[in-house]
Amino acid sequence: MSFFKRLKESVSKTTESVTQKFKDGLSKTSSSLVGAMDSVFSRNRIDEELFEELEDVLIGADVGVQTTMEIVDRLRSEVKQRKVKDPADLQPLLSEILVEMLQGDDRDTAMNLKADGLSIILFVGVNGVGKTTTIGKLAHQYRQEGKRVILAAGDTFRAGAIEQLEVWGERVGVDVIRHQAGSDPAAVIYDGIQAAKARGADILLCDTAGRLHSKVNLMEELKKVYRVIQREVPEAPHETLLVLDSTTGQNALQQAKWFNEATRLSGIVLTKMDGTAKGGIAVAIRRELSIPVKWIGLGEKLDDLQPFDAEQFVHALFVQAIEKEEEA
């Protein structure tokens, strides 16, 4: 069975609507990448020129030079091993490699939440990537699952940040624990934890101010927040999610590295995948740091958040090609 067929079967196990959501959300990404891919795979034969063109496509998707070289090298050796002759057969091979790379060693991209009692999720990342918005979306999702959710307004620095989270709290119908602008973020998070405990909440979502990973004092401030959470609840934070803007280029690797060092990341949220950026940097991060993508953001509204699924992701990227293969 061709890899595309297998991919399709595996994907159809999840509900139609989820697949549709991925397809719609990623339609921009997909059409631009597939356009470029098409020109590669419709070449006459598999030669060095083809591999070079493919390199360009992957680098153009922000996969990065090193990871791209690795992918193309693997493709080269697969071609040799499996004696592939037709360029059209490369595309499923490439999908397979990409899925494998994105899944890493363990396929588990689920959230590690406690079945009973309080789970704490900390959101970190550089400025403007979508931390606060993702918290709003995730709160909505957990509320719909019937969970008790509380938000902590740990960004006390950026103008209007507290009010922004409060608007999300109102939209979703959950409480927001806040202090005044300019106060100590660790103290807000501490209060959030106490409130969550007192009110018997299932989930506490902690917002933090955007900060560049290269700023030592701001990273120290974040470590302090992390320590407070660790001290107050054993095993917490249950998830520390790095929010990454999918339009980000190679700097995302540095972001992942430094935030991971400061707070031991458990996953990544890839936002703004509804644009034309391809989020290829996620592949590089998975390869270099083994941090899985857990969610993707597909818009600015409440329900524009989807659990990440490598097969869905690659399926959506190649959806035009897959449909073509079926027609044939």
Binding site: S32, G60, A61, D62, V126, G249, Q250, N251, G275, K278
Partner: peptide, 12 residues
């Protein structure tokens, strides 16, 4: 424009 933008900067 965010200086951290990757390859998509040209399309934008």
């Amino acid at each position: 424009v965010d200086a951290m933008t990757g390859q998509d900067a040209v399309n934008v």
